[in-house]
Computed example of a mutant assay.
Amino acid sequence: MLTFEPDETLAHRLDPRTKLAVQIGFAATALAHTTPRALLVLSALTAIALVAANVSLRRTLVAYRFALLILALAPLIAGVAFGPPWIDRSDAVASGLASYRVLLILLVSAAYVRSTPIRDSRAAIQRTIPGKPGQILGVGVGLVFRFLPVLRSDLRTIREAMAARLGTERGAVDRAGTVAVLGLTRAFNRADRLSLALQARCFAWNPTLPPLSFSRADYPVLAFAVVLALSTFY
Rank of each mutant, 00 (worst) to 15 (best):
A72Y: 06
L73Q: 07
L73F: 11
L73P: 05
L73G: 08
A74F: 15
P75G: 11
P75D: 09
L76N: 01
L76W: 14
I77C: 01
A78N: 09
V80Q: 08
A81D: 13
F82W: 14
G83D: 09
G83I: 06
G83C: 02
G83V: 06
G83K: 01
P84M: 11
W86N: 07
W86H: 11
W86D: 02
I87G: 08
R89V: 12
R89D: 12
A92D: 09
V93Q: 04
V93K: 05
A94M: 08
S95Q: 10
S95T: 07
G96Y: 02
G96F: 00
S99W: 00
R101A: 07
V102Q: 05
L103E: 10
L103I: 13
L103F: 08
L104S: 03
I105W: 04
I105R: 01
L106G: 01
V108L: 13
A110F: 07
A111I: 03
A111C: 05
V113S: 02
R114I: 04
R114N: 08
R114L: 00
S115I: 03
T116H: 06
T116C: 03
I118W: 04
D120K: 01
D120L: 01
R122P: 09
R122I: 00
A123T: 02
A124P: 06
Q126V: 07
R127W: 01
T128N: 03
I129D: 00
P130M: 08
P130T: 05
P130G: 02
G131M: 02
K132Q: 10
K132P: 03
P133D: 01
P133C: 03
G134K: 05
Q135D: 08
I136D: 03
L137Q: 08
L137D: 04
L137M: 15
G138N: 00
G138W: 03
V139N: 08
V139S: 10
V139R: 12
V141L: 13
V141Q: 07
V141E: 07
V144P: 00
F145D: 07
F145N: 10
F145P: 03
F145R: 02
F147P: 00
F147E: 11
F147S: 00
P149E: 10
V150P: 11
L151N: 04
R152F: 14
S153A: 15
D154T: 10
R156V: 15
R156P: 07
R156K: 13
T157C: 07
A163V: 02
A163M: 02
A164K: 00
R165P: 11
L166N: 07
L166V: 06
G167N: 06
E169F: 12
E169Q: 11
R170H: 08
R170E: 11
G171F: 14
A172Y: 14
A172M: 14
V173D: 12
V173A: 13
D174W: 13
R175P: 04
R175C: 05
A176R: 09
G177F: 15
T178D: 15
V179M: 08
A180L: 15
V181E: 13
V181M: 15
V181I: 14
V181C: 13
L182G: 15
L182M: 15
L182P: 10
G183Y: 12
G183C: 10
L184H: 06
L184N: 12
L184S: 12
T185V: 15
T185W: 13
R186W: 05
R186M: 09
A187S: 14
F188W: 14
F188L: 15
N189A: 12
